[in-house]
Simulated assay, not measured.
Amino acid sequence: MDSPHGAAVTAEGFGLKGPRGWTFRSVSIDAAPGALVAIEGPSGSGRTCLLLALAGRMHATEGRAEVGGLPLPRKMAAVRRISALGPVPGVSELDPALTVAEHLRERALLQRRFDGSLRALLRPRAERAAEARGRIDAALEAAGLDLATLPKQERTSVRDLERLEGLRLSVALALIGRPRLLAVDDTDLKLSDADRAEAWALLRRVTEGGTTVLAVCSQAPEGTTIVRTTAGQDIPAAADADAEAGSEADAQAVVPPAQPEADTEAESGTEAAVGSRPDTRPEADIEAETGIGTGSETASLPESGSGPDSGSKGTGRSGAGIRTNDTNEEGAADALAETGRA
């Protein structure tokens, strides 16, 4: 896998205000390309909202920020195309009913459909399959996920994965798109001390490959760029659960408005028609395209009109990206938001 050039992340006086007040405010960041940035703070302090805002998924309301030289919030769509989400609860979660192979195969199919030009889609099948297999193998290696060690190898269901293995799979899925920026939520949640050390070692390896990593955590390790969040002054003191609920409400309230499809096509140079039809080819063709055997499992293909989006919480299976009810509002140019286009 070609080492992507990481995206520098800078922010000054960065803030987001929702219906209940400030979700986060006065955030300053200065991270070089390929840095590991830990977003640290208590539950309900706006950590996830800051993560999504920096990844181009939420519309900030004050201050300035740039990701890879792209100003936020003006260039949110462009930031989405160079970034990818790892595990973010309620946004880009793994589907526990799917197997590891189904997640990988679905992500590879979406990557091929939305990330390539029409000319690339017309390449020989063997060439496309080899590229997909290479992307998957490189992503698994970078995430440190060895399929042979899983209970049922690649046919292991996500529900049977340990927490650390699930994190590795989510990171691998994001890296298939070769993003310049990787955003990971709840990095150290429900991990033992040993697994927490493994998780941070994983993210450091990702940065060594050139990708900038933003990771939400409750306690940042040494050697990371630390950004601390505190709840806004306008939000009344409450229990952590109530504060978290407020942050989720804010997240839904600040989704950027829909853009005309023509505008998004012009910005990305990709025709919306490329990803507008479901893949109805036989299962054997799907296996040949992705290089991942289907075995006795049924291939998981995206439904018509669905695909990764980033403006709101997913409503369907999210192993290959966010599922929403309004995926057409950003057009096909943003369909790769969650697969991480370099």
Rank of each mutant, 00 (worst) to 15 (best):
M1S: 00
S3H: 04
P4H: 06
K17G: 03
W22G: 03
R25C: 11
S26E: 14
D30G: 07
A32T: 12
P33H: 11
P33F: 12
P33C: 09
A38M: 14
A38T: 03
S43Y: 05
L50M: 10
A53K: 12
L54T: 07
L54Q: 10
A60R: 12
E62M: 05
R64H: 13
V67P: 08
G68P: 10
G68S: 12
G69R: 11
G69Y: 11
P71D: 06
P71F: 04
R74H: 13
A78E: 15
V79F: 09
S83G: 13
L85A: 11
G86Q: 09
P89L: 14
P89K: 10
V100P: 00
A101G: 12
H103R: 02
L109Y: 01
L109C: 04
L118T: 09
L121R: 14
R123M: 01
A130F: 00
A130L: 01
E131Y: 00
E131A: 00
D137Q: 09
A143C: 05
L150C: 04
L150V: 09
K152A: 12
E154V: 04
V158C: 09
V158D: 04
R159V: 13
D160M: 12
R168L: 02
L169R: 00
P179A: 02
L181W: 09
L181N: 06
A183W: 08
V184Y: 02
D188T: 01
L189Q: 14
K190L: 15
L191A: 11
A199P: 05
R204T: 11
R205N: 10
L214K: 08
C217K: 06
G223R: 07
T225G: 01
R228C: 09
T229H: 10
D234N: 09
I235D: 02
P236L: 13
P236V: 11
A237S: 12
A245Q: 14
G246M: 10
G246I: 14
S247D: 12
E248I: 15
A249G: 07
A258H: 05
Q259I: 07
Q259P: 01
P260R: 07
D263L: 15
E267S: 06
T270W: 09
E271K: 09
P278R: 07
R281V: 03
I286G: 00
A288F: 01
E289I: 00
G295D: 11
S296R: 13
S296Y: 04
S296P: 04
T298Q: 09
T298H: 10
L301D: 02
L301W: 03
P302S: 07
K313S: 14
K313C: 02
G314H: 15
G316V: 15
S318W: 01
G321L: 14
G331R: 10
D334I: 11
A335D: 05
